[in-house]
């Protein structure tokens, strides 16, 4: 094994990790504010991929504009899902929301299969994104760097928003205590909808990245990355944005290195490895890498 091989594996791991991180943020934000694991989140990732395909391949939008369209499409679908499936369930037992999210996942997937078929599509990227740039002893594609940079920029923007703006503060307050947040004059429905919109927008962008990186998308593409991003969120400490980002990168790197460094007969076990990693982390750190509280809200 050469240093160059290792370096290129690390880049691949970071790219995969960046996408996991973006999806995991949504899991974490939504869980943080409504204590709900949204199993439709992976399908919003797929919606993002198709929105990207539509805006790049069909509408021929320039790439940066496509990113914007995908963010908006994701936010819109997230808002819609929240309004239609989760808001009516507010105050219901947790398991009700869980089942509702499975229903949303099934509906989204089958709608997609009915309208655009389950056939995988080729996702072509502009030539400049496919160009190679030298990085030390290896060359990487522009798209790899773009994915990592875009993920970091979006994450930084989100962290800044949550930490330093009035609305971000209100979201944190809502996540902690609905009743007292309302006593402050906060419209909690609006904050919950916002968390869904932001989380879904980021997952949708991850869908665009996935297509750009691997060149192929399908309506059911969200299931496995969605599950793994959920694992990343739990590893990082669910409810924490920085935990989700850390968990995403750790998991992406670990997964790629597992496949890349071990003999090839192990590579069939990459998914098993991910879930084994989850169990291991939870055994050692039940709250994840960054998570703090174990309390459940009354």
């Amino acid at each position: 094994m050469t240093g160059a091989y290792l370096l290129s594996q690390i880049v691949n791991g970071l790219v995969l990790g960046a996408m996991y991180a973006l999806i995991a943020i949504g899991f974490s934000m939504i869980y943080g504010i409504v204590r709900l694991i949204n199993f439709a989140h992976g399908d919003i990732f797929a919606v993002g991929a198709f929105a990207a395909l539509g805006s790049i391949a069909i509408a021929a939008l320039p790439f940066p504009l496509a990113v914007l369209v995908v963010l908006l499409a994701g936010a819109l679908v997230g808002l819609l899902v929240e309004r239609a499936a989760f808001r009516p369930m507010r105050g219901a037992p947790q398991v009700t929301g869980f089942i509702a999210s499975l229903a949303v996942a099934i509906i989204l997937e089958n709608l997609a299969v009915m309208t655009i078929t389950a056939q995988p599509r080729t996702f072509a990227i502009p030539a400049w994104l496919g160009a190679l740039v030298p990085l030390g002893s290896i060359s990487v594609r522009v798209v790899d760097i773009a994915i990592i940079v875009l993920a970091l920029v979006l994450t930084a923007a989100l962290v800044g928003f949550v930490r330093f703006t009035r609305t971000g503060m209100a979201m944190r307050a809502t996540a902690e205590n609905y009743g007292v947040a309302r006593l402050m004059g906060i419209n909690i429905d609006r904050m919950i909808a916002l968390a869904f919109a932001i989380g879904s927008a980021l997952a949708a962008v991850a869908g665009l990245m996935w297509g750009a990186k691997y060149g192929q998308i399908s309506p059911l593409m969200g299931t496995v990355p969605g599950l793994k991003a959920f694992v990343a969120a739990v590893i990082g400490g669910v409810g924490s944005i920085s935990g989700a980002v850390l968990g995403g990168f750790v998991l992406g790197l670990a997964e790629v290195l597992f496949v890349g460094l071990l003999p090839s007969e192990f590579s069939a076990f990459r998914n098993a490895f991910v879930f084994a990693a989850l169990i291991l982390v939870l055994l050692v750190m039940p709250n994840g890498l960054i998570g703090k509280s174990t309390e459940t809200r009354a």
Partner: peptide, 23 residues
């Protein structure tokens, strides 16, 4: 001002005051 104080633990002392002026 609710029973049991119900200070936001995820907000700093200054932010807890600021959130009181949310509107």
């Amino acid at each position: 001002c609710p029973e049991g104080r119900q200070i936001f633990a995820n907000l700093s002392v200054a932010e807890n005051l600021a959130i009181g002026a949310f509107l």
